[in-house]
Each structure stands twice: as structure tokens, then as C-alpha cells.
Amino acid sequence: MNAIALAKPTAKLDASPEALLDPPWVRWLLILISVSFIFLFLCLPLASVMVEAFAKGVDAYLSTLAIPDAQSAIGLTLLTAFATVPLNTIFGVAAAWCITRFEFPGKSFLTTLIDLPFSVSPVISGLIFVLLFGAQGWFGGWLAEHDIKIIFAVPGIILATLFITFPFVARELIPLMQEMGSEEEEAALSLGASGWRTFFLITVPNIKWGLLYGVLLCNARAMGEFGAVSVVSGHIRGLTNTLPLHVEVSYNEYDFVAAFASASILAGLAIVTLVLKSFLEWKQHNDRQLSDVL
């Protein structure tokens, strides 16, 4: 995920008339290349998940999802998202506010630090929590004394996910709020509105679609993270297996239908995210056009 990508959602999809200037053969060649590349690298994997999931029919598909281990994996995945997304959303708004509305020394360094979890290998993201809370780690002894379980339990999974999805909302809002500028807010404030009132009546309506988009991506990643969670989970069946881990477990038990059925839920989630995202972009685009007209 990246800044610019999230900053300027595709607004203008209709081809400009100038495009017609390209000779037809160039156009068709490029479209052919694009479509086949997307087909090869994106459509085919997606289709293959679905084909494998339904390889033995709808009943087999549904029954693999009905077993307690699958249910508890789905539950844990939802719980993890439920715990991490709101926290990272609050953080994202706060960080975007202080970075885009104020000038202070070290700002660009701070921005880089916020980005850091994007490019940290998931393996490292898991490792650091083992080093902190593992039995041999910094707080290991203290945690054992007080009988608090973090690693190989739900809190560890939530922490690792929190780390992985940390920048999503902030990274979406920062460019958006930068572009927006603060004139409207300043106007409201100078007219005597309180800080919170200004935030809720001016800022939120302006950033709501971008915010939702960030939340959506954050949620998708929170539910789909594998590498980091795998390191801190302990793989206890029915207890600390999230859905992506359940995919791996089922795959390793030669239960391919179950593996791909769980994978298809995650892929389905990805599709829903993408559809919602397109909708949000369209909505944001319309809102903007409307405000331009006004």
C-alpha cells in the first residue's frame, strides 16, 4: 500500500478525446497486453481459488466451514479486526491532523516512521513481539510471574496485527488532508466554533470517503495477515488459529477443499473490499465534482 496510490483515487476513468490520437494498432496492442497480463496474474489466481473451493460441490464447501475449528478461526479473525481497526483508525486521524495541520521540526521523519511497518518484513513483525513478550524475551519473566499470556494467545495476535496494519488509515488521510487544506477549518474556528465541532462538521464530511477507504484496507489486511501472525500464534487448533492460518492447517491436513473454502472467504472479503473501494472512489469523485460546481 502506498501514499500516492491512496492519495488520488482514480477519479477520471473516461478516456479523453486526445487518446484517439494514438494509432489503433498501438491502442489494441496495449489493451491486449494489459488485459492478458491482468488475466494471467490476477484473474487466474482468483478463479483457481474458487474452482478448488467448490471442487467437491457446494455441500462439501459449506460443511468444511461448519466445523468448529473453522468457526473459531473465523471468530478469531473477526475479533482481531474488531480490536485493531478502531485503534488504528483513531491513530490515523490524530496523526493526519497533527501532520497536515501543523508545521514542526522532524515532520518528514515522523511520516517515514509511520510508513515503516509497510516495508518491514512480516517475519520481523512477528519476531519483535516474540523478543518482547516471549518466555525468553524482555517481559517474559514478569509476564509469567503475573500469569499474563500475550504471545501464543489472542493478545499477541492482536498486537502483531496492530503493527502490520498501523499505517493504513494515516497513510490514506495524510495526502488527502494535505490536498484539502485548512482554510475551511480556519474559517469555522475564527467564527467561534470549537475544535471538536469544527472537526466533526468540517473535517469529517470532507475526509469521510477517504477515511472509510483507509478503514476498509486496514480491515482487509487485518483479517488476511499471515506471516506475522504465524510467528506469534502457536497454532493451537480452535484457539489461536486465524483464518489465514486455518488455510495453512487445512492444506497441511490434505483437506484441500477446506483450505480453499477458507481461502475463498478471504478472497471474497478481498472482492467485497475492492467493490466497496470502487464505490467509495466514485462517491468521493461525485462529492468533489459537486463541491466544484457549488
Binding site: G224, P244, T273
Partner: peptide, 17 residues
């Protein structure tokens, strides 16, 4: 819309597929 699939699809699923 499909372009973002690799962002949203869990990496383990992507690998297996």
C-alpha cells in the same frame, strides 16, 4: 478494481494459488 487484489488477498493464499 481487480488491480488491488494483491493488497487484499492474504499472502499465504496467494502463494498456494
Amino acid at each position: 478494481a481487480l488491480i488491488d487484489l494483491p493488497f487484499a488477498l492474504p499472502t499465504a493464499v496467494a502463494g498456494i494459488v
